[in-house]
């Protein structure tokens, strides 16, 4: 059994292109095309299913943001929807056999750093640059190193949480997969004679059983982690804006 990261597609002295970046590009293109497809010739009174689906998605994103961040931040709905969409689609790309970009730490760390920049922007906006710097000395100045660490841990923990869930799902599926292969070769190899010799190489137990795990680790975990990532972004921005 071998656990590998994303495949490196192109490499030279100062640059390399990993497979997860390419998968992210494909996911971005798919989401963009889907948005264009769903919002073509909109009407005041929807006639087709397409517009009903589009309105449902937009309403869901608007309600999510309004319930969690308040009316003041309602213009953050596109960002929240974008984060949710790219996270869900990236994680679910593993169902199509691609290496999921969210199983690559660099991808989620990139997203988390973007969100961290936004959080810092709101902190500075809420209390001024001096007040932001003073926040590191609260409640006493001795706690400065600990405050810096806890500030740096915000993006790290967001990224680690998302990456860890997807990566642990991949590794557990892989372990179960190889264990089932070994089990089937042992069981079928126990059949005496030429039949056992022949059937030994047929991994019969690998059919179907890993799919049950995949429902949890790929479908459920991907959607929940995307939701949590988005939720933490909203909660953190709201807390930062309150000073």
């Amino acid at each position: 059994m071998e656990v590998n990261g994303a495949k490196i597609i192109y490499q030279n002295d100062w640059f390399f292109l990993s497979g997860s970046v390419v998968t992210t590009w494909i996911v971005m293109a798919v989401i963009t095309l889907l948005c264009i497809f769903l919002t073509r010739n909109l009407k005041v009174h929807p006639t087709g299913k397409r517009q009903v689906i589009a309105e449902f998605l937009v309403n869901a994103a608007n309600n999510l943001v309004k319930n969690n961040m308040g009316e003041r931040f309602s213009y953050y709905a596109p960002l929240a929807a974008a984060v949710l969409a790219i996270s869900v689609c990236s994680s679910l790309s593993s169902l199509l056999g691609a290496f999921p970009p969210t199983g690559d730490f660099s991808t989620v760390l990139g997203w988390a750093l973007v969100i961290f920049t936004l959080i810092t922007y709101w902190k500075i906006k809420a209390s001024g640059f001096g007040g932001y710097l003073k926040g590191y000395l609260q409640p006493v100045a001795v706690l400065l190193p600990i405050n810096i660490i806890s500030e740096a841990m915000t993006p790290m923990s967001m990224a680690f949480r998302h990456f860890g869930n997807i990566a642990s799902g991949m590794i557990i599926s892989m372990l179960v997969y190889s264990a089932l292969g070994a089990l089937s070769s042992t069981v079928l190899g126990a059949i005496p004679g030429a039949v056992g010799q022949l059937l030994q190489n047929v991994p019969i137990f690998q059919v179907g059983i890993p799919a049950i795990l995949s429902v949890y680790f790929d479908l459920f975990s991907s959607c929940i982690q995307a939701f949590i990532f988005c939720m933490l972004m909203m909660v953190n921005i709201k807390l930062a804006s309150e000073g």
Binding site: V3, S157, F160, R161, F163, G164, N165, A167, S168, I171, I224, Q225, F227, I228, M231, L232, V235
Partner: peptide
């Protein structure tokens, strides 16, 4: 339910950290 899922995800962090340490040590 949504609050519970958020809380559960937050408290899962320590487990994820240990998983990453284990992953680094083995891989």
């Amino acid at each position: 339910t949504s609050t519970m899922i958020l809380g559960i995800a937050l408290s899962e962090t320590t487990g994820i950290y240990s998983f990453i340490i284990a992953l680094l040590l083995v891989m």
